[in-house]
Design a protein around this nucleic acid. Structure first.
Lengths: 271, 271
DNA sequence: TCCGTTCACTGGTCGGACCAGTACGCTTGG
DNA sequence: CCAAGCGTACTGGTCCGACCAGTGAACGGA
């Protein structure tokens, strides 16, 4: 016989996995839309021909994947949920918690995402979306006097408006996730800063420059300013040995061997 | 009394969730490392003071999150797993399956990631990592005559070497995931292409140019070439109405209104 | 010494049971 | 007539006990 036949190891499929597959397939095919309800556990038990334990394990998997939510006593059964970035957030947080990814790399990735978001927003955003950015910017201005928490909210709103303007769902979702992880790491440090108001005002100015570049439809400039803005805002929280990772995302890229220091908190990016 | 007190709704914590939390916390704290074993279900049942069903639901959640794997009959109990991008892959695939993200956006995101990966690799990669890229490139050359499957493997190896050279775990992981999703969508189309050999040879040349830029430590050029290479390779598979998304990632950015066509399969990026 | 058998134990599945909730409809009081 | 209150038939969350098909290691025989 031909020596070409190759057998692959058969991985046993557990009953609850088949249940998960079927339900997930229905959701993915659009036959079950967000808001729709699954039958009750006891009903599905009969439909799938398995015990309730099996059904429950399947539901736990679906629930942990963010596809479904079930509530005790609900006669309507488990509810199909719209997409959520919660599982992504968990995954990224796990990378951080296990020290596989440091703050420097996170900020670097934000520079990557936010830079591209601004590049694309400058080139693709509709006038309405730009208006949203302007609205968020005005809110930031007001929020300065209301403390760090509200300013941070406004800042998030601005970056999210830019992400939407990029017309990329992936950028939007990833930005949201990475931003959340970063804030979880250093939010308190910023809030505790004595001159937090000065920081906020400086940040506001940077954002204004970025927005102007977007309105000028100058993508390259918007991207560059956005990266520099993030660097100026976050670099001091990044351990010195990780800062070259951030600097490598900027224009004045140092030669690989010697890494000249780039001044923090200066207006070097006004160009 | 002060009107400031605000009560937040208490969301009941189910028993299996507490089990998940405890185990996850141990893993995240490093008290349980990949390869370590969990006690058997019946042992944990006693330790946590809950029933086996509850333990099992917790294990199903951990397993679906990729933290743990359990095998029937294994006397050692469930095994702690190293980080895997499997759940990320699933999440991204779900975005695609539910039509929230199209092929164009995926390729665009690849351009974003791969561009930055090359930028950073040119500036940060060690000589050993560059040697790995060269090795992958040689393998690609050989693989051309061995058919699309092997060439694709070599191509993946090259891009992965670049991603490693970027010294960013996030870029590495995200690139891996997005690449996998894209290949899942159009691998067959490329393989079925009549002149696939010509495509491979052209792709090889592009990769060589990119690698040269990396070796020259010219990050900007490497990034630009990488983006153009992806565009040239994939644009024809992207529906025409989505191509502006890709073109917006290139230098010759069209004004937002009118989008002049950028020729496919030309050598326009030889500059 | 090596190989085969045995056996304690594993996870996977099942069925039944109880509890604390929820939502709906019915009854009851106005 | 309507509204408030209660009852009830469900829901999901948890527990228990049982059986099965596997695994792996200790054990025993060749």
């Amino acid at each position: 016989m031909a020596g070409e036949v190759r057998f692959e190891p058969v991985h046993t499929v557990r009953a609850y996995e088949r249940v998960v597959e079927q339900i997930e397939e229905h959701v993915l095919r659009g036959q079950l839309k967000p808001g729709d309800r699954l039958p009750s556990e006891r009903t599905m038990m009969a439909q799938f021909g398995v015990s309730r334990s099996t059904i429950r394990e399947a539901l736990r998997v679906l629930e942990s994947g963010g596809l479904v939510r079930s509530r005790p006593g609900d006669p309507a059964g488990a509810q199909i949920l719209p997409f959520s970035s919660a599982t992504l957030h968990k995954t990224f947080n796990r990378l951080v918690r296990t020290d596989q990814v440091g703050l420097g790399e996170l900020i670097q990735f934000r520079m990557l995402l936010d830079g591209s978001a601004n590049l694309l927003a400058a080139r693709l955003a509709t006038d309405e979306q730009i208006a949203e950015m302007e609205a968020a910017m005005e809110y930031m201005e007001i929020a300065i006097d209301r403390g760090y928490v509200e300013f941070s909210e406004a800042d998030v709103a601005f970056h999210d408006a830019v992400a939407r303007g990029s017309r990329s769902t992936l950028i939007q979702v990833c930005s949201d996730v990475v931003r959340g992880v970063v804030l979880g790491l250093i939010a308190h440090k910023i809030a505790d800063s004595p001159d937090s108001k000065a920081l906020m005002r400086r940040s506001l100015n940077h954002h204004a420059e970025v927005l102007q570049a977007v309105k000028d439809r100058d993508g390259e400039r918007a991207a560059r300013l956005a990266r520099h803005s993030l660097y100026a805002y976050y670099a001091e929280y990044v351990p010195p040995e990780e800062r070259p990772l951030l600097q490598a995302m900027l224009e004045e890229a140092p030669p690989p061997g010697s890494l000249p220091a780039i001044p923090l908190r200066s207006s070097f990016y006004n160009m």
